[in-house]
């Protein structure tokens, strides 16, 4: 199979000049083994150098190349182009403000990440002489798959609750917080569960499961969110009978 022609309908937007996003069409010849990102790179290099989009690693680890391809959130460096027909629509990730063309603004996302305290919280830090916190392979397995997130934000673009309630903590942030709640070295459950029950609460999730459908790293954020609900519920019930404690 040789090269084939495809038309890319790409969303363009320059907030300094345009009132609303428009689209531009590029017809190029694509190679059979191309990913969607390869087509964008070709367009940028050979057809239209003004096109703006993010990418870096080209191997599905940096998480920067997420876009809507034919309406679905995709990691474009992993997205096989041959699965699509002659016309491919490429737009910026849904549910985010757009900086320019296919580049989104993710300050709100980063703020949610910080809120779930994604680091090991201890009531009292161990002194260096006391050695490391040991963890068995079984304890690691408890949370390992929830720690595979690359922050590509596809799950936020797919989540119907995020699109409706911008304050919702969202799949990736909850999965990350839950990952630390499951970590045997961590003691910050109480603090995180309060975040889970506060503004943007985990209970807003209506279990559409879209986040897990689109996750390119098989993190299964929907499972994390629903386990986090149970955790937040048990912690709430515990708070009714026991005084609160633990690190903030």
């Amino acid at each position: 199979m040789g090269e084939q022609k495809k038309t890319f309908v790409v969303t363009r937007f320059d907030p300094d000049r345009d009132d609303a996003p428009t689209t531009r069409e590029y017809e190029i010849a694509v190679q059979p083994d191309w990913k969607t990102l390869d087509a964008l790179n070709f367009i940028k290099d050979h057809v239209d150098g003004t096109l703006a989009y993010r990418w870096s690693c080209r191997m599905a680890v940096c998480g920067s190349c997420g876009m809507m391809v034919n309406g679905e959130p995709r990691l474009t460096c992993k997205d096989v182009l041959s699965q699509y027909g002659d016309t491919v629509h490429i737009a910026p990730l849904a549910n985010f403000p757009v900086v320019r063309d296919l580049v989104i603004e993710f300050d709100g996302f980063m703020e949610k990440f910080e809120r779930v305290k994604p680091w090991i919280l201890r009531a009292k830090e161990k002194a260096v002489e006391e050695g490391t916190h040991r963890q068995s392979p079984e304890q690691l397995a408890d949370f390992q798959h929830f720690s595979m997130c690359i922050n590509c934000m596809l799950c936020y673009a797919a989540c119907p609750v995020v699109s409706n309630e911008p304050a919702f903590l969202g799949p990736a942030a909850i999965a990350l917080g839950h990952r630390y709640n499951l970590d045997s070295r961590d003691e910050g459950n109480g603090a995180r569960n309060q975040v889970f029950r506060g503004d943007g609460t985990v209970f807003s999730c209506s279990y559409a499961n879209e986040c897990s459908e689109v996750c390119p790293k098989k993190v299964d954020p929907a499972a994390a969110v629903n386990q986090a609900k149970i955790g937040a519920l048990l912690d709430w019930a515990k708070g009714l009978v026991l005084p609160r404690g633990g690190p903030e």
Binding site: G198, D199, F203, L233
Partner: peptide
């Protein structure tokens, strides 16, 4: 509503 959410969700 945030306060009662856990119990509502349980029910």
């Amino acid at each position: 509503l945030l306060r009662i959410e856990p119990i509502v969700w349980l029910l």
